[in-house]
Design a protein around this nucleic acid. Structure first.
Lengths: 222, 222
DNA sequence: GATACATTCTAACGACCATCGGAATGTATG
DNA sequence: CATACATTCCGATGGTCGTTAGAATGTATC
């Protein structure tokens, strides 16, 4: 009866993916890489970890074939092995949100001002954006916007908002989004713009969540 | 800057799910529980592991809130904490199949006779089954069929096939399915029926895969 | 070709995990 | 109430993992 051996082998392979996803640091790396390719240096600084540790974690992700890398001059650039990997990350997070009370509560407290959360559904927001009834801004760094962004969104990195206020309409509601529910960039943007008197809200979705919900995203035509 | 602390907390919670999914035995448990609730004893024998070890793994799954349990007389019955957990398992397996060559190849060799794999799409199969052009049989144990099964499928546990041959049409193509791509029950059924001269094929999908693809499944109205 | 830099590789240590044996818990049965 | 049974809890052991420090690799620059 070597069916057992065969099954062990199969489940063991899937467990390689599970193991890769069993460390908070590595999950954060996946979340970051879902926004676009990045150098080890960038990833390390986003993680607040040193480069050696980051490299070690990337190695594990690489061995699980969840990420690939290429060399570009002095830098090595990592990216997700496929969009299904971003989907898996979203799925993991959603299951965690659904079943882990601790996470649900932490998330609830995370949004600085819950009243600033957009109340409309994804589909309605998409329609409003299409008709120009709201101004959707992507507050992530530009290169992440260029990799993929929500339809009708314009790039407005949080670091540049102050300088580029003139580009924002004062009569429209502004809706900010960033990397996803665990990202605080859109909170910063909301605080900043609200202080300037703008009508501004945020959504929790990032590009991966939007895409996982079956909605379209835009890529930069290259 | 305690944003770091907050993020660490969030990713750590998700990592609880990843850790639970990082062991082959636990993944097999999830796969089994996706078919329906089961006692520890049943799970242990399906796993070919002893009860203590099975119990220990179930404990981990329980602490990650992926499964719940209830007592019924002498037995303790485990079940998945939600259908999203089955979806996560499918997603994990799909990512593994997509990116891990070893798994792709092992799966390729697993189906005893590749010619016996149904070539039609899920949607087409569903149509054919609805019109009675094929006979879809669910070769899992009856209680798993009762928990959920493919539309138009009839229950025909592999252990009973020999005895119930009279119930099967000899003029129609028979399509067998079981727990999913890692399950060998449908292979057994195909071998058995092919030897008796039936026209028989199998599909790799189980109920979870079918559901994850957005197709309907039937539950027993209770 | 020497130097600077980004990154990986190697080695090592402590923490955690899978597994197993034995004791304990809780439920049904006689 | 004693016994059988299913399951969990506790403790021990060996292996694996995260993390850190130091050496090595490969690329660009002067």
């Amino acid at each position: 009866m070597n069916k057992r051996l065969l099954k062990d082998l199969l489940y063991e392979q899937v467990a390689r993916i599970g193991k890769a996803a069993s460390s908070p640091k590595r999950l954060e790396l996946l979340d970051l890489l879902a926004q676009g390719e990045k150098t080890v240096e960038t990833l390390a600084s986003e993680l607040s970890a040193d480069i050696k540790l980051t490299s070690a974690h990337l190695r594990v992700l690489k061995e699980a074939r969840l990420v690939t890398f290429r060399r570009e001059g002095k830098y090595i650039i990592y990216q997700l092995a496929g969009s299904d990997v971003a989907g898996l990350w979203v799925n993991l997070r959603q299951v965690a949100e659904e079943h882990l009370l601790e996470l649900k509560m932490a998330l609830g407290q995370m949004v600085a001002d819950p009243a600033k959360l957009s109340a409309v559904s994804r589909e309605v927001l998409l329609e409003q954006a299409k008709r120009g009834e709201v101004c959707v801004i992507d507050v992530r760094p530009l290169n992440e916007y260029e990799t993929a962004h929500l339809p009708f969104a314009r790039s407005m990195p949080v670091a540049e908002i102050e300088r580029r206020l003139a580009e924002l309409p004062s009569d429209l509601e502004i809706v900010a989004y960033c990397r996803g529910p665990f990202c605080l960039l859109s909170d910063e943007a909301v605080a900043l713009l609200a202080a300037k008197g703008y009508r501004v809200r945020k959504i929790l979705d990032g590009v991966s969540e939007w895409q996982a919900a079956g909605l379209p995203v835009e890529h930069l035509e290259s």
